[in-house]
Amino acid sequence: MSFFLRWLFALLLLTATYNPSPWNFVRWASENWQAQLPLTVLLALVLLVGYVIYLRATLRSIGAFGMALVLALVGALLWVLWDFGLFDLSDPKLMTWVGILALSLVLGVGLSWSIIRRKLSGQVDMDDVEDA
Rank of each mutant, 00 (worst) to 15 (best):
W97H: 06
G108T: 01
L13G: 02
S61R: 14
G108F: 00
W23L: 14
I53F: 12
V41D: 04
M67N: 05
Y54L: 10
F84P: 06
F87A: 09
V129L: 14
L77V: 14
S112I: 03
N24Q: 06
R118H: 13
W7M: 04
P22W: 09
T40P: 02
P20M: 05
G75R: 07
I100L: 14
I100E: 02
M126Y: 14
I53Q: 09
S21A: 14
L45W: 09
A132E: 15
F87S: 08
G75V: 07
L39G: 06
N32Q: 12
Q123I: 06
S61N: 15
L101G: 10
R6G: 01
A132W: 13
V106W: 00
L105Y: 02
V41K: 06
S121L: 09
Q34E: 14
L94W: 04
R118S: 12
N19I: 02
L69V: 13
T17Q: 08
R118C: 06
G108Y: 03
L8G: 01
P20K: 02
T17V: 06
I116S: 01
F25N: 04
N32Y: 06
W97D: 03
V70I: 15
R117D: 11
S104R: 02
G75S: 10
G63S: 14
A68F: 10
P38W: 06
V109D: 01
P20E: 02
D83K: 15
S114K: 11
P22I: 07
L43H: 05
A102L: 01
V80E: 13
V52F: 12
S21E: 12
N24F: 00
F4P: 01
A72F: 12
Q36C: 02
A132S: 12
L89Q: 13
L105I: 12
K93A: 15
L105M: 08
E31I: 13
L77C: 11
L59P: 02
F25Y: 13
W23Q: 12
I62C: 05
L103I: 00
D131H: 13
F3T: 01
I115F: 07
W97I: 03
A76L: 12
